[in-house]
């Protein structure tokens, strides 16, 4: 049983990194997983200009299962400092590798919710820029 919720997952759930809200964020986006009600909101502060923006800071809030919340924490730890373009290229498998535990199909959606919120937020931000 322990292999499913390894120490690092529980640690991210109990002590989430980048947890909270960023005032005057450049990107704020929230989505829910309709199946289980997991909810995640991500705020992003950008710096840079033109085509060279990077993630200066990011924070999330939400509620839901351990996988969804811990994955969001791991994701933000991973993306802060990266360029927006890099983040847009992140494959779902990268997120699953970060989580690093075997997930059934239904739980994969939980793990990917944060990435979906972040990517959609970036997409909407880019639309606003044009």
């Amino acid at each position: 049983m322990q292999d499913l919720y390894r120490e690092h997952i529980l640690d991210h759930y109990e002590n989430p990194r980048h947890h909270g809200v960023i005032e005057h964020a450049d990107i704020s986006h929230e989505e829910s997983n309709p199946l289980c009600g997991d909810r995640i909101r991500i705020d992003v502060k950008l710096d840079g200009e033109g085509n060279r923006y990077r993630i200066a800071d990011a924070a999330f809030t939400g509620d839901g299962c351990i996988i969804s919340q811990a994955a969001a924490s791991m994701l933000l730890e991973d993306v802060v400092g990266k360029s927006v373009d890099e983040v847009e290229q992140i494959e779902p498998q990268h997120m699953l590798d970060l989580v690093g535990i075997p997930l059934t199909a239904a739980r994969v959606k939980c793990a990917l919710l944060g990435l979906k919120v972040l990517k959609t937020g970036i997409k909407l931000w880019k639309l606003q820029q044009t």
């Binding site: 049983m1 292999d3 499913l4 289980c36 009600g37 299962c65 351990i66 996988i67 059934t104 939980c110």
Partner: peptide
Amino acid sequence: VHPHDLASLLDREGVAIRAGH
């Protein structure tokens, strides 16, 4: 304990329950 986490852990023990709404 979120019901989905519980259901996943129970599945590891072969116990099938439903979680959600």
